[in-house]
Nucleic acid binder design. Structure first.
Lengths: 215, 215
DNA sequence: GTCTATATACAGATAGAC
DNA sequence: GTCTATCTGTATATAGAC
């Protein structure tokens, strides 16, 4: 089985090879078929180890799920939608770049499958849901807010409530694509995504652009 | 297949009392604990019938789920966010009313639980997902679009793409509340909802209000 | 149609040899 | 640490009496 998992969470040395194989198999099976449907036998088979070995590393099926989600959240953490670089902001290109990165991120197969896995089991594993929320959506909101604050400081935008505006921007460019995906009704076309991004930026700027510096 | 289910919603006459008890129990248990976790034994117990009786009405656990979702979708169908009444539209109050109805609908426990149930099992039951999508989200979008078209006809709004604008409006007033709920991180406060609605309307109107009739 | 009792399969988890 | 073999509970679904 392919195992390109290079992250810092799990010890990458050869010693823990089987452990990483197990996590890889769990990721594949849990995220595609679901937690309850996936048996420990199936994971052991997919990972190429025995079931007993599996229980050496993880005390229970629940523990394996938690470890997996923690690991995945850590691996998606470092990404950044925007970082200050001291130079003047070009508003529209910057917003478009943020929107593109964001939709790419949340339409990415791995992130999306993780989302669904967490969501489907949030009731039974509330801690997992919080970890995911902090590493994923909340982080995105904060990065957008950071950008908006910088744009306000440069007098490009006028925003009474930065947090609200960040949520509005992300909601606009996301539209209802998440629904389509959550319900597994096929991936939206590139055209759909582009139309949503362009339209979203237009609406957002109509509301928040500083009229005094409009060229 | 002992049942030719001819119904629109389940026949409420006394004859099918136990059948409705079963559907009620299935709704309660499936939507709160999940499909896989809920056993047919538990449903039979909750419904106050034997498991064998249950299998007289539904060929399998899967069939019970499908029947339940169909039934729920039919029961949420008739609602309306807006209907034309021939009189001139008062823009802001009308948008606010639509937004309130919409958030009330999608924050409603029953609708929300149904959403999660469908979503969690969409991969295995694609037909179910389509039925839900048509009866729920898609229907809402269409009703908003109908309203927007009427407002455009009365020259209150200027909208190049009605479908896109409808999605944008719903996205704005929904914000990321669905995330919070999907991940079971608690119901949003009334204040949060109100802020989102007011802010969303403001942004929407800034982008689409017809400037020529602004009072 | 409805029940009790049961067939059959497979789940999560463990024992014990190496 | 890793394996094979197994324990134990519970799941879906059915048989057969009434």
């Amino acid at each position: 089985m392919p195992r390109p998992r290079r992250n810092q969470a799990i010890d990458p040395s050869g010693e823990n090879r089987k452990l990483r194989q197990v996590l890889g198999a769990a990721r594949e099976l849990f995220t595609t078929h679901g937690f309850d449907v996936t048996s420990m036998d199936a994971i052991a088979r997919e990972a190429g180890v025995s079931k007993a070995t599996l229980y050496v590393h993880f005390a229970s099926k629940d523990a394996l799920l938690s470890a997996l989600v923690d690991d995945e959240c850590r691996s998606i953490g470092p990404q950044m939608l925007w970082q200050p670089d001291g130079r003047p902001i070009e508003l529209e290109p910057a917003l478009r770049a943020i929107a593109r990165d964001y939709t790419a991120f949340f339409l990415d197969d791995r992130g999306l499958k993780l989302h669904r896995l967490v969501m489907s089991n949030a009731a039974r594993f509330p801690k997992m849901a919080e970890v995911f929320m902090a590493a994923g959506p909340r982080r995105c909101e904060q990065e957008v807010a950071t950008f908006l604050r910088a744009a306000v400081a440069q007098q490009l935008l006028r925003i009474p409530d930065i947090g609200l505006a960040a949520i509005q921007f992300l909601s606009l460019v996301q539209g209802r694509l998440h629904l389509q995906w959550e319900l597994q009704l096929g991936r939206p076309s590139a055209n759909d995504v582009a139309a949503l991004i362009d339209g979203g930026i237009r609406v957002f700027l109509a509301a928040y652009r500083n009229p005094e510096i409009r060229p």
